[in-house]
Design a protein around this nucleic acid. Structure first.
Length: 148
DNA sequence: GCCAACGTTGGC
DNA sequence: GCCAACGTTGGC
């Protein structure tokens, strides 16, 4: 899951322990949260846009997909009149802090790793803010010393 | 700050 | 249903 650290960082998650992943307004990302993510699933927390760009920590799903209520609030930045409580369009999950990397695993190093060639986040133009991680990719990422 | 890549919108 | 125009994302 990608986040801009100046908006919400791994340290913010560490401080709040849990959070709801609201504001996703992309159908593909929504589908992952609504249909694929289950309680206990682990998440890589990725810092985008701001140096250092890369994986900053790990979290886990503590509540599976449910309607993103921020879409119903006209004053919310992510308000979407097309989404109704009776017929929600957008979904989110709750995640809980697990681990912070000693230092961010830079995107550059992810790109250098042959096992991560196909990983979504290293592809050019990859903009999906919630995306799956293959088991082999997960294994390779856990080997980075930044987790120690 | 730039700009390529992408998703969405809306006219036809 | 097509596709150009537009807005956004996000690495550099």
């Amino acid at each position: 899951m990608k986040s801009e650290p100046n908006v919400f960082s791994i340290d913010d998650l560490k401080a709040s322990k849990t959070t709801y992943w609201s504001g996703v307004r992309n159908y593909q990302a929504r589908n992952f949260m609504r249909d694929r993510m289950k309680v206990g699933d682990r998440i890589l927390f990725y810092h985008s846009n701001v140096e250092p760009i890369g994986i900053a920590g790990m979290a886990e799903v503590v509540k599976a997909g449910y309607p993103d209520f921020t879409a119903w609030d006209p004053k919310d930045k992510y308000y979407d009149p097309a989404s109704l409580p009776s017929k929600p369009v957008w979904y989110m999950v709750d995640i809980q802090f697990m681990k912070r990397c000693r230092s961010v695993i830079p995107l550059k190093r992810l790109k250098e790793n042959p096992a991560l060639k196909k990983m979504g986040v290293v592809q050019k133009g990859s903009r999906l803010s919630v995306q799956p991680v293959a088991p082999e990719e997960w294994k390779a990422i856990l080997k980075f010393p930044e987790w120690d």
